[in-house]
Computed example of a mutant assay.
Amino acid sequence: MSAGLSGEELLAWNDTTFVRWMELVKRHPEILRLSCDVYGVGDINGLLHHIVAAELRYAQRLFGEVETAYEDIPADVAGMEAAHVGMLKRVRELFADATFDWEQAVSFQTRSMGSLRASRRTVLNHTLLHGIRHYAQMAMLVRQGGIAPGWPMDYLFMGVMGRE
């Protein structure tokens, strides 16, 4: 057994977190209009869009596809759900490919940092953890806006079997 998280475990945490946020947004659509200064997005809708756009685009890079233009990813709930599902599909397919070389370096163009080069493993981990950081920022803003997300977000709670 490895002491660290597997890609599958990170993917599950990422997906569970996304699904919970979408459930909350559907119950409280006013969340999307809350002000957000993270990454200059303007509001929570912009931050959610940033999360799923990055996920999809990095998964496409790993998959060897030309990434979808950021502005071509719809910034509504249905579009963001579709982008997230697109990431899940690609990453799961790569996990199923025993010949996929996670150590191979890839070069890619970013929106804010220019051209970069990293191993596929690094890109995968960024793909799956990038949103987790932003969801934490979003949780604070949403609580300040008067809405409690209402679930524990730490990874610990992915494996908690109950209370002693």
Rank of each mutant, 00 (worst) to 15 (best):
M1A: 12
A3E: 12
G4A: 14
L5A: 08
S6W: 03
E9P: 02
L10S: 04
A12Q: 10
A12G: 05
A12L: 14
A12D: 10
N14F: 04
D15M: 02
T16G: 09
R20H: 07
R20V: 01
M22Y: 04
K26W: 02
H28C: 02
I31P: 01
D37G: 08
Y39E: 10
Y39P: 03
G40A: 06
V41Y: 03
V41F: 06
D43N: 13
G46W: 01
L47W: 14
H49V: 01
H49E: 07
A53K: 03
A54N: 02
R57Y: 07
Y58E: 01
L62K: 08
G64P: 05
E65H: 03
E65D: 11
E67T: 05
T68Y: 13
T68F: 15
T68R: 12
A69D: 13
A69S: 13
A69K: 07
Y70L: 03
D72Q: 13
P74M: 15
A75S: 15
A75K: 04
D76P: 04
D76M: 08
A78P: 09
G79V: 01
G79E: 00
M80W: 00
E81H: 06
A82C: 02
A83E: 00
V85M: 03
G86C: 00
G86K: 00
M87S: 15
M87V: 03
L88G: 02
V91I: 15
V91G: 01
R92N: 02
L94Q: 00
D97C: 08
A98H: 15
T99W: 08
A105K: 11
A105G: 09
T110K: 01
R111P: 02
G114Y: 14
S115V: 07
R117Q: 13
R117I: 09
A118F: 07
A118K: 09
S119K: 11
S119F: 04
S119W: 00
T122R: 07
V123S: 10
V123E: 09
H126I: 11
T127R: 09
L128D: 15
L129D: 09
H130Y: 03
G131H: 03
R133A: 11
Y135E: 09
A136F: 03
Q137P: 03
A139H: 00
M140I: 05
L141A: 04
V142R: 03
R143N: 01
G146A: 03
I147L: 11
A148V: 11
P149L: 09
Y155H: 05
Y155N: 03
L156D: 15
F157M: 10
V160P: 04
G162P: 04
R163E: 04
E164A: 14
